[in-house]
Each structure stands twice: as structure tokens, then as C-alpha cells.
């Protein structure tokens, strides 16, 4: 059932300087909580994305540490005050060590 997580990010392409924008992110991931049991009654091991980081021009601006209580296909939104043009890097860190990333350009002016 495991598919490769696909991140989806919504960032406005062009904004005015000083404008506050909302960034919405979503990634497909089962977020197995480690609480469920399979049909044989054995616990299904935990496998979640435990950290989401948003950086702008290489500088972290927002970090979310997720626990198993975060829903499957985790959604995360936050705000950013646009000061200069640049590029966002979004990174999701999986329990198994893999990292999924997405990039979006932001043009100010």
C-alpha cells in the first residue's frame, strides 16, 4: 500500500513587498501511528513524517514537529511575510530517514 509520498504546495507566484501570504502544503503519506493492529493482532510499526521544515533562501522560517496524532496525508499551513524575491524549500522528514522535498519560487514586486 505504500506509495511514494507526493508533496503538494500552494504559494502565490507574485506578491507585493510586505504582503502576508498563507502557504498551504499537503503530502500523501499513510502516517502509520504505531497504535493499530493487523488482522493477526500484531502491532503495525510506526512510520510517520516527523518533521516539516520550510526555508526561504536557505533560511528556516517555519518548523513543525509532527506526532503520530497527525492525520494521514498531513496538511500544514502557515504564514510568511514577503520581503524579497526568492525560493522556498519545503522538506518532510520520514521516520525511515527519507526526506521528501519541494521548491517554489516567490516573486516580490
Amino acid at each position: 500500500m505504500t506509495t511514494k509520498p507526493t508533496p503538494r504546495v500552494r504559494v502565490p507566484a507574485k506578491v507585493a513587498a510586505g504582503e502576508m501570504i498563507e502557504i498551504k502544503t499537503l503530502i500523501s503519506h499513510e502516517m502509520e501511528s504505531g497504535q493499530r493492529k493487523d488482522s493477526k493482532g500484531e502491532t503495525i510499526p510506526r512510520k510517520i513524517i516527523n518533521k516539516f521544515t520550510a526555508s526561504f533562501n536557505g533560511k528556516p522560517v517555519f518548523v513543525a514537529d509532527w506526532n503520530p496524532a497527525i492525520s494521514a496525508n498531513p496538511y500544514q499551513s502557515f504564514f510568511f511575510k514577503a520581503a524579497e524575491s526568492g525560493e522556498f524549500t519545503f522538506a518532510w522528514k520520514d521516520d525511515d530517514g527519507s526526506e521528501y522535498t519541494a521548491k517554489s519560487k516567490l516573486t516580490v514586486g
Binding site: Q35, F62, A69, I70, S77, F78
Partner: peptide, 26 residues
């Protein structure tokens, strides 16, 4: 819940607004 933690956020002044939304299991 089985574990008390849901989510922890770290904000920076660059955010402009200390607001975030996600979805959780209860």
C-alpha cells in the same frame, strides 16, 4: 490520545503572523 503530543511549531519573525493549521487524530 494514546500519546499526549500532537504537534510542535517553531516560528520566526519572517512568518509575519504566528498562525498555523493542520489536521489531527483524536
Amino acid at each position: 490520545n494514546p500519546q499526549p503530543g500532537i504537534v510542535s511549531y517553531q516560528f520566526t519573525p519572517a512568518c509575519g503572523k504566528a498562525s498555523a493549521a493542520t489536521r489531527m487524530r483524536l
